[in-house]
Every structure is written in C-alpha cells, then in structure tokens.
C-alpha cells in the first residue's frame, strides 16, 4: 500500500463510522485531492462531507474551527505548508486557544493536514517546513508521518480524538510503499526506533528518516560503529523517554532535520538533551539541518540547501572522527 493510500484508508474507515466527520480543502472533492489522499471520498460520501473550498486558507481552517464548535469533526487539507501561513491566525489564535480561553467549555475535535518540504524544484514558496513554528504553539498536537503504517494509525487517531491536531506529511512520501498492520493499534505519541544500534543515536522525523536510513550503512562502515535511528513521529508532545533511553546507551547524539537550522525544530530537542542529559554525553550533540536560505529553484542549489543521504553520511563521519567514535 502507498502512503497516500494509507491516509485515504484512515479517512475512509473513520468517515464510514461517524457521519460527523467531514473534510474540506482545495480540490479535495471532485478533483480527488492534489496528492490523491482524498481520492474516492467525494463519490462515496458526497459533497456535503467532502467539501471543495475556494482558495482561501484562512477560511478553510477558520470554518473548520466553527464546524468543530458546531459539533462536527472536520479534517482540513491545506495544499502545502507555505499556504498554511495564510491560515496561521486561525490555527494559532483560534484552533489552539479557544479551549483554554473558554476554560474547557469549548472542544475542538479537528485536524489540519498538509504536506511540506522540498519536493523537486518547486522553489521557495512551495518547499518549506513549518513544524518549528507550530510546535512552539501550546494547544496543538503535532504529528509527522514518515511511514505507511504510522500514517494510517496516526491519522485515524487524530481524526477520532477530541483535540486539535496538526498532521504533517511530506511531498516526496506520498508514493512510498509499505504495509499497514491493522491487527494492533499504535500509540501515535511514541517515537519509533527504526534501527537499533549502540554507538550513535540519530534522531529524525518525516522524510529525513528515510535519508538517514540510506546514510547509515556508510556511517557504520566508516566509523566502525552501530547507529540507533529514532523516528520522533510526534513532534508535540515529544517522546523524551525514548530519546533518553537511547542516548544513555550510546552517549552520542545527532539530530537530522530538513527545516532551516536557525530556530529549527531540532534546536528544542538538542536544548533538552543539553539540559537533561549533559553528563550522559561523550561528545557535543550535533545538528544537521537545512541551510538558512529560502529554498532555491536550481536543482543543484536546492539539494545543497537541505540534508541528503550523502551529506548526512559525510557530516556524521567527520563529526564522529573528531569525537572519537
């Protein structure tokens, strides 16, 4: 099953059970979804539940907030993270705050989904990552789906939960293949160990997990070590417990992320490690992140602006040699 099909399955199974679940966004209905995530839902559930909206992101999220207040369970799709910026007033001032400001009188069972990150030469206004901004907002739960099984279980959880969720996908993951295991439910807030190892803990999330996995064999060979690769999965809250267990074992940690390094999401993870696990470390924590530039159109420059399997391997090997791995 493909990643986008797993998301579609999560929609379909939840919508079939609860007619309060509706979805809205640009081209989600008759067109079938820009990335085909909502394909077939319009035909199956009709235009009242699969709502084609104008190109008006503020209203897509703003209306979803009102639908949730009115008793529905809306799932809003934003075409790409950069467009979500037009909805940031609704996400930050309304979706995240109404429950708290009303002292728990309002409940907002809703999800805002969007893909983000560098795809292929879409340039600066279609390629960025904004998890760092959204994770800085109390009142939102933020999930980042890097694999097929997690995508299915986590989206189902988010849709059925009574809390407001930001659900982050990646443009290059929609056609990723994998299996969905429906025999058991997974905890979407628990980080997943994608590969076990002893000497270096590599923390990542979303598409960078795949890039780390592609780099790991070379790193292990060159440094004669083993790496543990952790997929955070939930960016808010962060599963610090899983990180701690791994770092106490390895005593070395690398954070790999696609967003810009300054103010990037990994800064929070590394700050926590420095505060809580300083004496467990045998080397300074290392961050590999996107360059502090708008994403350029040119393919060569574009790849220079973000971590790639090659650059991840090269940087970790250099860091490892300097730090006696």
């Amino acid at each position: 099953m493909l990643y986008r099909e797993a998301l579609n399955k999560a929609y379909d199974e939840t919508m079939a059970k609860d007619e309060n679940i509706v979805t809205l966004g640009e081209d989600v209905g008759r067109y079938g979804g820009s990335y085909r995530v909502t394909e077939g839902l319009y035909e199956k559930y009709g235009e009242k539940r699969v709502i084609d909206t104008p190109i008006a992101e503020l209203s897509i999220v703003g209306n979803a907030v009102g639908m949730a207040i009115g008793g529905l369970r809306p799932v809003a799709e934003i075409m790409t993270a950069n467009f979500a910026l037009l909805a940031f007033d609704q996400i930050i001032n309304h979706m995240s705050k109404l429950r708290y400001m009303s002292n728990g009188k309002l409940t907002l069972p809703m999800v805002v989904r969007f893909p983000q990150g560098v795809s292929r030469q879409l340039a600066a206004q279609h390629s960025e990552s904004y998890e760092q901004m959204l994770c800085a907002v109390p009142g939102l739960k933020v999930l980042a789906a890097s694999d097929v099984n997690y995508a299915y279980h986590a989206l189902k959880h988010a849709i059925m939960s009574d809390d407001p969720f930001i659900f982050i996908e990646h443009e290059l993951l929609y056609n990723k293949k994998g299996e969905v295991d429906t025999s058991s439910v997974i905890d979407p807030f628990k980080a997943q160990i994608r590969k076990e190892g002893e000497d270096i803990t590599i923390i990542s999330y979303l598409k960078m997990v795949d890039d780390v996995m592609l780099a790991v064999e070379r790193i292990e060979k060159e440094l004669d070590c083993t790496c543990e690769v952790i997929d955070l999965c939930s960016l808010n809250p962060i599963d610090y417990e899983t990180l701690q267990t791994s770092i106490e074992k390895s005593s070395r940690v690398v954070m790999v992320e696609e967003d810009h390094k300054t103010g990037g999401f990994g800064a929070q993870v590394v700050a926590w490690i420095a505060e809580e696990l300083f004496y467990a470390l045998d080397a300074p924590p290392f961050r590999i992140a996107g360059a502090d530039v708008p994403i350029p159109y040119n393919r060569h420059l574009e790849l220079l602006s973000i971590p790639t399997p090659d650059s991840i391997a090269a940087q970790i090997i250099e860091w490892g040699r300097k730090n006696d791995v």
Partner: peptide, 8 residues
C-alpha cells in the same frame, strides 16, 4: 469564518 463553519 468560525461562524461560517458553525452555520455549515
């Protein structure tokens, strides 16, 4: 926009 959603 919240009122629009509620009306929906």
């Amino acid at each position: 926009p919240n009122a629009v959603g509620c009306a929906y």
